[in-house]
Amino acid sequence: MRLKLSLMGIVSLAAVIFLLSWQVNIEILGYVLSKRSIKVLAILLSAWSIGSATLVFQTITGNRILSPSILGLDSIYILFQLLAVMLIGRFSPLATNPYVNYIVTTILMCLFSSLLYQRVFSKKKSIFSVVLIGVVMGTFFSSITGMLQMIMDPDAYTMALDRLFASFNDVEEDLLLLSSIIVSLVVVQFYRNHHLLDVIALGKNYAVNLGIEYDKEVKKLLVMIFLLISVSTALVGPITFLGFFAVNITKTYLKTHKHRILIWGTVFMATITLLISQILVEHVFGFGLPISILISIFGGTYFIALLLRESAA
């Protein structure tokens, strides 16, 4: 187990080094490295947040094919980006200034999700009601988005489009630092609670029987998931399927239920997936393909394969 985990660590490290050093021009080494390290850091950050958030989300829901994007956070993000360009104008600070955009979107997503969960939890509904409401809200927001895309000015749309696909090539340094602090704090918090996560994975009845304050703990974990997803989406854009892909591959590979190992496994696996996709985007497709599309192709195929296998079994 330890061996497999270290192997995953080594592969991610190798990919990091490759991305940093491949075809580097020695004369402008400092400049290139600083540019590239920002990119790599942004990748690590997304991998950490999306990977661990999806793992914990699946543990809470006891379902292997769900991911937190089902809660509709991504669609809120997209809707907001379109609205910002359309209503406030494409030259307003909200659309052009990445800092303002980042802070406002993060706050908005956190606000929405806490509203959602608060309403739902105050009525003592189960986690599945939360998921269901999330799905409905997500569809609702995407429908509005679809309508807006139809009626909006094509120039403005092109501008907004840029933000709708995840990209690691234009990330702001200061925002990255702030996000890294938030993300690492939350992931460490997950890790410190790994025994608790093991028990929550057994289901509500078990957890309550073993003396866990289930509702309170799940609420706390959900808030942390919201935070992770909001931060990473606002920074680089939505990447569907990454979490799902990383968690399932990790579970199949490591064959364990212990979150102490699964957390790091998932984080490494998400890192490897993102890094390799980025390498492909840069060196094979020559930046012609957005990374999120590449990952959706991987992840989507795997998703369908898993569904087919489950239904066959």
């Binding site: 790994h194 025994h195 608790l196 093991d198 028990v199 057994l202 078990y206 073993l210 003396g211 866990i212 239920h257």
Partner: peptide, 13 residues
């Protein structure tokens, strides 16, 4: 593992 979980209230894992 399952039986081990029974000890959670005492040792928290």
């Amino acid at each position: 593992d399952l039986v081990g979980f029974g000890r959670y209230p005492y040792s928290e894992g």
